[in-house]
Amino acid sequence: MQFKLIINGKTLKGEITIEAVDAAEAEKFFKQYANDNGIDGEWTYDDATKTFTVTE
């Protein structure tokens, strides 16, 4: 399945899409990606669109 991350950071904005087995695997990848890029904010997930959003 495809999952999307929308980044609304103070210094980094954009979107990335990955293939993952389930939402838990996608969330783990996205949170590591955000951590690696210094993004720390509020997370939301929309199951209907398979979209995670992080907002700083």
Rank of each mutant, 00 (worst) to 15 (best):
L12D: 10
D46F: 11
A20P: 03
T55C: 02
F3I: 02
D46Q: 10
I6T: 04
I7F: 09
G9H: 12
G41L: 01
D46P: 01
T53C: 02
I18V: 11
W43Q: 03
M1F: 11
L5H: 00
I18K: 14
D22F: 10
L5N: 01
A20N: 13
K50C: 03
Y33R: 02
T11P: 13
A26V: 11
I6E: 05
T49D: 05
A20H: 07
T51S: 06
A20W: 03
Q2K: 13
A48R: 14
F30M: 03
V21H: 15
M1Q: 08
V21M: 04
N8F: 14
I7K: 01
F29R: 14
A26S: 12
V21Q: 02
T55R: 12
A23G: 10
M1C: 02
F52S: 02
F3S: 00
T53D: 06
A23Q: 14
E15Y: 02
Q32M: 04
F52E: 00
D40E: 07
K28H: 08
I16G: 03
K10Q: 12
T11H: 03
Q2G: 15
G14D: 15
D22P: 04
F29N: 11
D36W: 13
D22N: 02
D22E: 15
I39A: 15
N35M: 10
A34L: 11
K13P: 07
T51K: 06
I6H: 13
V54L: 09
E19N: 13
A23I: 05
D22M: 10
Y33F: 12
A24I: 10
I16S: 05
Y33M: 10
A20T: 10
G38Q: 09
T53L: 07
E25S: 15
F52R: 00
F30P: 00
K31D: 05
I18H: 13
G9W: 05
E15Q: 04
K28C: 03
F3G: 00
G14R: 06
Q2I: 09
V54Y: 01
K28S: 15
I6M: 02
Y33D: 06
Y45W: 14
A34F: 01
T44Q: 14
K28Q: 13
E19M: 15
T44N: 10
A24W: 11
I7H: 06
E27A: 11
Q32F: 12
A23M: 12
D40S: 06
L12C: 03
N35Q: 12
I39E: 06
A23R: 15
G41H: 00
K4V: 13
I7D: 03
K4P: 00
A34G: 04
T51H: 10
V21T: 06
V21G: 04
Y45G: 01
I39K: 01
E42Y: 07
L12G: 05
V21N: 15
K28E: 15
A48I: 04
W43V: 03
W43P: 04
K10R: 11
E27I: 14
V21S: 04
Q32E: 12
N35C: 02
A23V: 11
A34C: 03
W43T: 04
K28W: 08
T53N: 15
Q2Y: 08
E27M: 09
T44E: 15
Q32V: 09
I6G: 06
W43S: 01
K10A: 09
K28F: 07
G9N: 09
I18E: 13
T44S: 07
F29T: 13
I16T: 08
T11V: 09
G38R: 07
G41F: 01
T17Y: 04
Q32L: 07
E25F: 09
T17L: 03
D40I: 13
D46R: 08
T17A: 09
E19F: 10
F29S: 10
D46L: 14
D36M: 08
Y33S: 08
V54T: 12
I18Y: 08
I18F: 09
D46W: 07
D47N: 05
D36N: 12
K50Q: 09
E42D: 11
E25C: 02
E56A: 01
I39H: 09
K28P: 07
G38Y: 05
D36L: 07
T51F: 12
T11I: 10
G14Q: 05
F30A: 15
E42R: 10
E56S: 07
F52D: 00
T49P: 15
L5D: 00
N8T: 02
E19Y: 14
Y45F: 14
N37A: 11
G38W: 14
D40L: 13
E56Q: 06
W43R: 01
F52A: 04
Q2D: 14
I16M: 10
T55A: 13
T17C: 02
M1K: 06
N37G: 06
A24G: 12
E27G: 13
E15I: 02
F3N: 00
F52M: 09
V54F: 11
A48W: 15
G38A: 07
N8P: 03
G14L: 10
E15M: 02
W43E: 00
D36K: 11
I18C: 02
V21W: 10
T17M: 10
T51W: 12
G14S: 08
G41P: 02
T44Y: 03
I39D: 01
L5V: 11
N8G: 02
F52W: 07
G9R: 08
I18A: 08
L12Y: 08
E19K: 06
A26N: 00
G9Q: 09
G41K: 01
N37T: 07
K10W: 14
A26T: 01
T17D: 03
I7P: 01
E19G: 05
T53G: 07
E19V: 05
I39T: 05
E25N: 15
I16K: 08
N35E: 04
A26W: 00
I16N: 02
E15W: 06
F29E: 05
E19D: 12
T44A: 15
G14E: 11
A23E: 08
A34Y: 01
K31T: 13
Q32Y: 08
I39Y: 13
E27C: 03
I16C: 03
I16Y: 05
K31N: 13
D36R: 10
D47P: 12
Q2M: 10
D46S: 11
D22V: 15
A26P: 00
I39C: 02
Y33Q: 06
D47C: 05
V21C: 06
E25G: 11
G14V: 13
E56D: 07
E25D: 11
G14A: 09
D36S: 06
E56G: 03
V54R: 00
G38H: 05
Y33P: 00
T11K: 08
N35Y: 12
D22I: 13
A26H: 00
A34P: 00
D47K: 10
F29I: 12
I7T: 13
V54M: 09
I39V: 15
N37R: 10
D22C: 02
G38L: 15
T51Y: 11
F29P: 02
Q32I: 13
E25P: 09
N8A: 08
E19R: 15
K13T: 05
D47A: 10
D47R: 03
D47H: 10
G14I: 15
Q32N: 07
K50V: 11
K31Y: 07
D47L: 09
G41N: 00
F30E: 00
K10D: 04
I18L: 08
D40M: 09
D46Y: 10
E15A: 05
T44C: 01
D40R: 05
T49H: 12
F52T: 10
A20D: 13
G9A: 09
T51G: 13
T49S: 06
Q32W: 12
T55G: 04
A24P: 15
K28T: 15
L5T: 02
T53P: 00
Q32P: 09
Q2P: 14
I39P: 07
T51I: 15
F30H: 02
N35R: 08
D36Y: 07
K50I: 10
K31F: 10
V21L: 07
T11C: 02
A48M: 13
A34E: 05
K13S: 13
K28R: 05
Y45L: 06
K4T: 06
Q2F: 07
T17I: 15
A23F: 04
G9P: 04
K10C: 02
K13Q: 14
